[in-house]
Design a protein around this nucleic acid. Structure first.
Lengths: 241, 241
DNA sequence: TGTATTAGATGACGTTACGTCACCTGCAAT
DNA sequence: ATTGCAGGTGACGTAACGTCATCTAATACA
């Protein structure tokens, strides 16, 4: 029967010798053989046990709990809970990534970050976003998912869309009416982008703007103030009406 | 101007009050206002700083290092490194998931697991010992390396860059011309490293050196003096021209 | 207005999962 | 014979807080 020393196990399983000694000390993994000279020798079974420990540890389970669990759980049970854990982490990671992308875009697009905006964005992504899409029908979803700028994207449309929002904010700040030339210009560009996005489906477009008006905590969309939304409505009404 | 107490920040950003006090204690995040009664009040700026800290911490960067470079890195640089990190985690997770799945299948199919098989599978997913610094760009590494002494960074390229810069400074001090033998040698090594770094992308390489000419407060990069830059240009021109 | 209930502050000690250090031992190799 | 490892045993150190006990000021409410 094969036996391994601490050093060999250490190299093989990428844990420190100290760790092995520690595990022995706290009675988590005691090597099957211990000779008079005090040396530790690990059996194949021990290695499996170590592997179990490593997996359970990766679930951020404290060693004390692992010790209690080790003999009660089968390898399969452990693997399955590990798998579930990984899946959880995966979805967390994915929202984290979109979130980070959004922030990067925000830094790019806004000259000065306001805490309010950033914190809104962070908050939204903390309670699992992506809810806005639930307001739509299956077939509508397909189109939207691909085309709606969600700030996590780096595409041109997103940038255009956001720079338009910035321009609107600027207009509001400088008291330039939606009925002015600038407002007209903005409306035209908005319509162009929208046509692009919704591929001429005006009904869907209207519905989208309805959803837009809901609070962003609910929809998980990039937060747009009431003022801006009103401006959009008015300048578009001015053009199309 | 808005101010937040420890409790409010704690709830908002999901960190414990103890943590905030600790960060104050170690001079990592000292609240902008501290009243006679001893209470801590955080400003908007403080919140941004906290957010930066949280992100850098997620790269498993020790708090001490975070303190040293918090002011030297822009929000965007931090976000991008974070993004790199997340991408890395994602691919690690994905392989981890696949491996776990196949292990579960193995347990299902073979009544007895052989250690050899299992260990093969697990070994693959382990060896990526990236350090936090690896999530930054080449040029940012220079800054980091300089800011945080004894970084223990094994990145050969960064070391080469720094030692070359030292050599150039030495040459300037001792009035050794870029057209000299030593200058020639330096140029050759520079070109070699650059080729390595940018993998033959000369455009990117040019841009790299262009950016270097801007003041470092603007770029947030490792400051290289005019003299050194000129030396670089001259000795490279001497070789390639 | 007085009082009860918090929210906040300050030490001080505890915690986890090891790292690190000093020093000792048995054994194979030169 | 000695030298160089690979192994061992305490003992202390560490990071990033958690968790008391105790005190004080701010706020809520009767």
């Amino acid at each position: 029967m094969k036996r391994w020393t601490t050093g060999q196990v250490s190299k093989q399983r990428n844990v420190s010798v100290r760790t092995l000694r520690y595990y022995d000390q706290i009675d988590l993994l005691t090597p099957s053989f211990k000779e008079d000279n005090g040396r530790r020798y690990y059996s194949e079974e021990d290695l499996f046990k170590l592997e179990k420990i490593i997996i359970l540890k990766s679930l951020s389970l404290p060693l004390e709990n692992i010790r209690d669990l080790l003999n009660k759980l089968s390898y399969k049970q452990i693997l399955i809970s590990h798998h579930n854990y990984l899946q959880d982490e995966l979805s967390k990671l994915q929202t984290s990534i979109t979130n980070t992308k959004s922030l990067i875009n925000m830094v790019d697009l806004e000259e000065s970050l306001s805490w309010e905006r950033v914190s809104q964005l962070i908050q939204i992504s903390q309670n699992s976003s992506k809810k806005w899409i639930d307001y739509f029908e299956v077939d509508e979803k397909l189109l939207l998912q691909e085309t709606i700028p969600n700030l996590g994207n780096n595409d041109r449309t997103t940038h255009q869309y956001i720079s338009l929002l910035r321009r609107i904010e600027w207009c509001i700040k400088h008291d330039i009416k939606p009925e002015s030339n600038e407002g007209h210009q903005i409306a035209c560009e908005l319509i162009e982008i929208s046509n692009d996005t919704f591929q001429g489906d005006t009904k869907l477009m209207d519905k989208f703007w309805e959803v837009r008006k809901l609070p962003s905590e609910e929809t998980g969309l990039y937060p747009i103030s009431e003022e801006v939304l009103e401006y959009v409505e008015r300048c578009i009404a001015n053009v199309t009406g």
